[in-house]
């Protein structure tokens, strides 16, 4: 096991796959000579050259479509979109071309692309650089969506996404690239579907994904130490399709659920998980499930307002205490 950073894990997955298959390429803004905004493609340009590590113009719609077109003929492009905020410009091609082509061609054509993008709110980047957009991607038929919460997942999900014949969107997080974690030394493929129990518990399930898994883990720690509440943390690293069985299993055990999301509440992961709970295990519930989420505002620049707009582990603790009638 190597203890490496999230960005290093992503870089390693690129490197291994590009070494194995000459048709694996990567493309995006400033990914080549500059090595990537978050270093996720560091050193690849020097190793694989400009034909396979492509610095693109600022043409998200164009280069995303170009990557998808290349994938029609068997190329496996890993397309980096610098920030999810810019992915709006690429969504037409991602949604209308990549996600639908298999279906509308009756299975003749497929777009085995990987789209990677940095999501989440970092520090004071303002309204046009702080969007959390998982809710947008996870509602599109034909597109798989995963979101790694640690370096092992970042590595293993990218490896699987490159091999998978479906288009996969990988939602990363601006604040997590320098997070360290254990990654297997040998080749490892993380399943593109399912969920993971990040901490086992009996009294309440805390559902998180990506950065909110860490809020949940921290909250579980506090709940255990200070309040004697045993929280289970379920990591929903796959947002589409959501793991119905995993959600059902955990709620059937704990009978209570809190969903923590960095996104705003409407049409989000929380509403979706609660719908699944209703459909799968409503009669197992001891209390109504609760969402912890951002305020419904464009992200403010001011530091204090920004903090007020985005939840953290303390909000998760508060939600659980309320659920138990302790607050």
């Amino acid at each position: 096991m190597a203890n490496i950073m999230y960005w290093e894990a992503i870089q390693r997955a690129h490197d291994e796959e590009m070494a194995r298959d000459p048709l694996v390429i990567c493309m995006g803004e400033d990914i080549g000579v500059a090595g990537g905004t978050y270093k996720a493609t560091k050193g690849l340009y020097e190793k694989y050259g400009p034909l396979r590590v492509i610095d693109t113009p600022i043409s998200e719609g164009g280069f995303t479509g170009l990557g998808i077109g290349a994938s029609f003929l068997g190329v496996r492009p890993i397309i980096e979109i610098m920030s999810v905020n810019f992915a709006w410009l690429a969504m037409d091609q991602m949604f209308n071309s990549a996600a639908k082509v298999r279906y509308m061609s009756g299975g003749q054509l497929t777009a085995p692309c990987v789209f990677r993008s940095a999501g989440g709110a970092a520090h004071q980047l303002g309204a046009q650089h702080s969007a959390r957009m998982e809710k947008v991607f996870m509602g599109i038929a034909g597109l798989r969506v995963v979101t790694p919460s640690n370096p092992k997942q970042a590595y293993g999900l990218l490896k699987s996404a490159i091999r998978c014949d479906d288009p996969v969107f990988i939602n990363e997080h601006e604040l997590m690239y320098n997070m360290k974690g254990e990654v297997p030394d040998g080749e490892y493929f993380h399943p593109l579907e399912g969920s993971e129990i990040a901490r086992s518990g009996t009294d309440v399930t805390l559902f998180g994904y990506n950065i909110s898994v860490h809020w949940c883990l921290k909250a579980a720690e506090i709940l255990d130490k200070q309040y004697g509440i045993s929280a289970e943390v379920v990591d929903l690293y796959c947002l589409s399709p959501l793991d119905r069985a995993g959600i059902k299993a955990s709620v059937s055990k704990t009978h209570r659920a809190v969903i923590a999301e960095e996104d705003e509440a409407p049409v989000g992961v929380g509403s979706e998980v609660i719908a699944i709970i209703n459909e799968e295990c409503f009669f197992e519930l001891d209390a109504a499930p609760v969402r912890v989420h951002s305020a419904m505002v464009p992200q403010p620049y001011n530091h204090t307002l920004e903090k007020a707009a985005i939840p953290d582990h303390e909000d998760v603790v508060k939600a659980v205490l309320k659920l138990f009638g302790k607050a």
Binding site: N85, L125, G126, A127, Q128, H129, P300, Y301, N302, L305
Partner: peptide, 21 residues
């Protein structure tokens, strides 16, 4: 204080704003 460096606006002076995309 809502906009920040990339989003300066002064509509009274017909400066219609800075945009990040």
């Amino acid at each position: 204080g809502r906009g920040g460096s990339m989003h300066i606006f002064d509509v009274s002076k017909r400066f219609m704003g800075g945009y990040a995309l």
